[in-house]
Computed example of a mutant assay.
Amino acid sequence: MGHSQRRRRRASGPSQITATLAIPFVGEISGTWQPADAERSAAWELYLELVTRVSVEELDPEEGFLREALSSLYTFFNTTREILRRYGPDVAPPLAPGHVSFGVLAVTVLNRVLRPLLASWHPRLTAYESQRPEECDPVAWERGWEHAPALRAQLAEVRRTLVSLARTLQEVAGVSDLIDLPAPRSPGLGPIGAPPPGVSEGP
């Protein structure tokens, strides 16, 4: 039962969607996506990578660490290439005009969104970090960088693209929303499933 159920589950999802992806400072690409099973599986894997990274988290001016955000995007870049390589040509079939595929969307995000950001900002941030005095806290030093607001603004633009990609992947994979999860409520408010008063929730 388990295996056939898993096979059926993986193949579920819409037979066709309209995919739209905003590209910062460039415009947008859109088209009809008729996903094959391999694309649904790849979509789930990439969706999971997106929702478990700093990539789709908003960075408030007084929170977050720019280095961590850039490192997360760099890792996501490499993971996306691995997923493309693993699934092979099945996720990038020849397409009629006005159509897109997993391969088209993923490579567009890599080459038009992530690569320019990382190529521009990684060396600049690294150069600034190398000037940090030993006694200065890395986070405080980073927040004192004159270019930090500009990088935050570009990260916010990239985040919007990644969230729109995640929404498209979610639809194709036929899975629930794992981005806007409800925030846990404090035990004092007695949410459903909370332990009784006096019972520890764990370490």
Score class of each variant (00 low, 15 high):
residue 130 S to M: 04
residue 122 H to V: 11
residue 113 V to T: 05
residue 140 A to H: 09
residue 113 V to Q: 09
residue 124 R to Q: 12
residue 123 P to T: 05
residue 130 S to P: 04
residue 112 R to W: 03
residue 132 R to F: 09
residue 134 E to A: 15
residue 129 E to K: 01
residue 136 C to R: 15
residue 134 E to K: 14
residue 111 N to K: 12
residue 122 H to A: 11
residue 111 N to C: 02
residue 106 A to P: 04
residue 128 Y to V: 07
residue 120 S to M: 05
residue 112 R to K: 12
residue 115 R to K: 11
residue 126 T to Q: 12
residue 137 D to M: 01
residue 130 S to F: 03
residue 138 P to L: 07
residue 125 L to E: 00
residue 127 A to H: 02
residue 139 V to I: 14
residue 133 P to I: 13
residue 111 N to Q: 13
residue 140 A to M: 11
residue 107 V to I: 12
residue 133 P to Y: 11
residue 106 A to M: 07
residue 112 R to H: 10
residue 115 R to T: 10
residue 125 L to C: 00
residue 135 E to T: 15
residue 137 D to N: 14
residue 107 V to F: 05
residue 125 L to G: 03
residue 131 Q to G: 12
residue 115 R to E: 11
residue 124 R to H: 06
residue 139 V to M: 12
residue 106 A to W: 04
residue 122 H to I: 08
residue 130 S to V: 00
residue 111 N to T: 10
residue 121 W to T: 05
residue 124 R to N: 03
residue 115 R to C: 02
residue 133 P to K: 15
residue 121 W to Q: 07
residue 137 D to G: 05
residue 138 P to Q: 04
residue 119 A to G: 02
residue 130 S to I: 02
residue 110 L to K: 06
residue 130 S to N: 12
residue 112 R to S: 14
residue 126 T to E: 13
residue 134 E to N: 14
residue 122 H to G: 03
residue 114 L to I: 03
residue 132 R to T: 11
residue 109 V to D: 09
residue 130 S to Y: 07
residue 120 S to I: 08
residue 117 L to K: 01
residue 130 S to W: 08
residue 122 H to E: 12
residue 136 C to E: 15
residue 106 A to Q: 01
residue 132 R to A: 12
residue 125 L to R: 06
residue 128 Y to T: 02
residue 109 V to G: 01
residue 129 E to M: 13
residue 104 V to K: 09
residue 107 V to E: 15
residue 120 S to W: 04
residue 107 V to W: 00
residue 134 E to R: 15
residue 108 T to Q: 08
residue 106 A to Y: 05
residue 130 S to H: 12
residue 120 S to N: 07
residue 128 Y to N: 02
residue 127 A to F: 03
residue 124 R to L: 13
residue 108 T to G: 01
residue 107 V to A: 11
residue 126 T to N: 14
residue 118 L to V: 02
residue 112 R to T: 08
residue 114 L to K: 02
residue 115 R to F: 00
residue 110 L to A: 06
residue 105 L to T: 07
residue 135 E to L: 14
residue 114 L to V: 02
residue 115 R to V: 05
residue 129 E to V: 03
residue 109 V to Y: 00
residue 122 H to T: 13
residue 139 V to T: 13
residue 105 L to V: 01
residue 135 E to Q: 13
residue 126 T to H: 10
residue 131 Q to W: 04
residue 108 T to V: 09
residue 127 A to M: 04
residue 131 Q to K: 15
residue 107 V to R: 14
residue 110 L to W: 04
